[in-house]
Design a protein around this nucleic acid. Structure first.
Lengths: 223, 223
DNA sequence: ACGGCAGTCAACACCATGTCGAGTGGAATC
DNA sequence: GATTCCACTCGACATGGTGTTGACTGCCGT
């Protein structure tokens, strides 16, 4: 019957039937092939046939596991954003202890996560233009990070460490957007880009000045 | 023989034979059709046949005028970036007179230009991932703007209005990247975005704090 | 009257995507 | 031990977009 539509989670057009099955390794093989090939050529130059053959199956069989090429990428993206979320964790909870160090830690961890999967991230950025599903997922995770940063900024203002100014949400959007685009340019290596070893400190500097108007924000409320 | 390869300028894969010809209006018709259709659906959903029929010609004839769909978009992008360059003009030459006003003017003019051609800009951002030619052109114009901003920052530092800090080029890249991504989100309207009427002031605020560490930079060298 | 060239298109070759329907083999059920 | 069921597989096909070929038209200069 209609295969590959039931999906594991809430997303409608991704994955395969849930539960155990002998074909689990095939699914993994497809994902592995995709990630491997993304290291060699752009996503658009990888055909479904390439993914299928790489996984040792025929093209029609590919469709048993994924509804489309984009769905494979989406699964890959899911992993990366989950890893990023885990890496970011609760770095911002004890912000007041050492704001500069905490913000830097946050940016550095994202940098490490994305840098470790640059092929996937780059491919997603490309596909985002044409694929609504990828766009939606990315918007979702971005919204989450924006909210976290927004809350942190408001916290800093509440304790008097950061001055009032732009609406915290607008500022959070601007800063997150900057990071996204700067990382993209750095990893893609086309056009004007910040050197990879400098990028964390460059971003950090803009974040700190935009939030605190200084690169050495004050520590703890009454210390 | 091989048509559509000589091009007007330096670019190798764009445009048609130079010189006068009765088919000039056809070329214009294709461009007009493209811009019109981009207002209705994404670039990927527009086929060469759509462009050809919209211009009143057959699909093979389209290839007499443009070597590909992307080349049409590239020509459209050329126009927009030229307009942006003209609009930006020499806003930064008398920066010291009223830095805040000048920077705002610069950002506002770009905003107006891009906003006036958002369909084209959005389409280019999408295609940039898959088309090296678009990527190259965009990198080129971005590099130009980065250099202008870099020089302006160095000027402000020289006159003592802005403190030292990040390398001016890195800062210029970061700020320009932020603008690009924030505008994209604002115009595309997907994901977290700044409201269109606020976006200039939000960007301005980050620019000023990053460059001057204050939103009210000092005027002219000696009072 | 004629050669050449801008301009035009029907027909074709190609390639990637997605679908259909007919299998196959192993585990659970009778 | 036969049977049924289902996860899983793929050959063959339909579709739709891209880019090319080769032949045709009409104008313009000689």
């Amino acid at each position: 019957m209609t295969p590959a539509r039931t999906s594991t989670g809430a997303a409608p057009t991704r994955g395969r039937r849930p539960g155990r099955s002998t074909g689990d390794d095939r699914e993994v093989a497809i994902l592995a092939t995709a990630e491997r090939l993304l290291g060699q050529r752009p996503f658009g130059d990888i055909s479904i046939d390439d993914l299928a053959r790489g996984a040792g199956i025929s093209r029609p069989t590919f469709y048993f596991y994924f509804p489309s090429k984009d769905a494979v990428l989406l699964t890959l993206l899911d992993r990366v954003t989950e890893e990023a979320n885990a890496a970011a964790g609760d770095v911002l909870v004890r912000l007041a202890d050492d704001p500069r160090a905490r913000w830097r830690e946050l940016i550095a961890r994202f940098h490490a996560t994305f840098g470790g999967h640059r092929d996937v991230v780059l491919a997603c950025a490309q596909v985002r233009g044409t694929n609504a599903e990828v766009r939606r997922l990315w918007a979702e995770v971005l919204e989450r990070w924006v909210r976290a940063v927004e809350a942190a900024i408001e916290g800093e203002r509440a304790r008097g460490a950061a001055p009032d100014g732009l609406p915290a949400r607008d500022l959070a959007i601007a800063l997150n957007s900057m990071n996204e685009r700067v990382w993209y340019a750095t990893f893609a290596g086309d056009g004007p880009a910040v050197a990879e070893r400098d990028v964390v400190d460059v971003l950090l500097d803009v974040w700190l000045t935009a939030i605190y108007r200084t690169t050495t924000p004050p520590v703890s409320p009454s210390g």
